[in-house]
Computed example of a mutant assay.
Amino acid sequence: MPLKGGKSQDAVKSNIKTLVHEWEDEGKIGSSHPRSKKKAIKQAVAISLKKAGKSRTQQKPRKH
């Protein structure tokens, strides 16, 4: 199932849920084969945030 586009938190959550269900059914996410559910969730988060154009940790701009 294709992932949703967009930067909203709901789109990211939906994509994570879709990817984790894909792992449960097929045993793989994309081309990777995480062995544990914890690693599958981390991989799903990374893929979803990449699709949304976000990073896992948002950093504040540095003042010079």
Rank of each mutant, 00 (worst) to 15 (best):
M1F: 06
M1I: 11
M1T: 10
P2Y: 08
P2G: 02
K4L: 14
K4N: 10
K4Q: 11
G5S: 15
G5F: 15
G6Q: 03
K7P: 09
S8D: 01
S8T: 06
Q9L: 11
Q9N: 05
Q9K: 05
D10G: 06
A11E: 00
V12Y: 01
V12P: 00
K13W: 11
K13A: 12
I16T: 09
K17L: 12
K17H: 10
K17E: 12
T18E: 10
T18P: 03
T18R: 07
L19E: 00
L19R: 02
L19G: 13
L19A: 11
V20H: 05
V20Y: 00
V20K: 03
H21S: 15
H21A: 15
E22H: 01
E22A: 07
W23A: 06
W23L: 07
E24G: 10
D25R: 14
G27T: 08
G27I: 06
K28Q: 09
K28H: 04
K28C: 04
I29W: 01
I29R: 07
I29S: 04
G30A: 08
G30M: 02
S31N: 10
S32F: 03
S32M: 06
S32D: 01
H33L: 11
H33I: 11
H33N: 07
R35M: 07
R35L: 12
S36W: 08
S36D: 05
S36A: 07
K38D: 06
K38H: 00
K38G: 05
K39P: 11
A40D: 07
A40I: 13
I41G: 10
K42S: 13
K42E: 06
V45L: 04
V45P: 01
V45Q: 04
V45Y: 03
A46I: 12
A46Q: 13
A46E: 09
I47K: 08
S48M: 05
S48H: 05
S48R: 09
L49I: 03
L49C: 01
K50P: 03
K51L: 11
K51M: 10
G53Y: 03
G53E: 04
R56A: 13
T57R: 01
Q58N: 14
Q58S: 15
Q59A: 08
Q59V: 09
Q59G: 09
Q59M: 06
K60R: 02
K60S: 14
K60M: 10
K60D: 14
K60I: 10
K60A: 14
R62Q: 05
R62T: 08
K63Y: 08
H64M: 15
H64V: 14
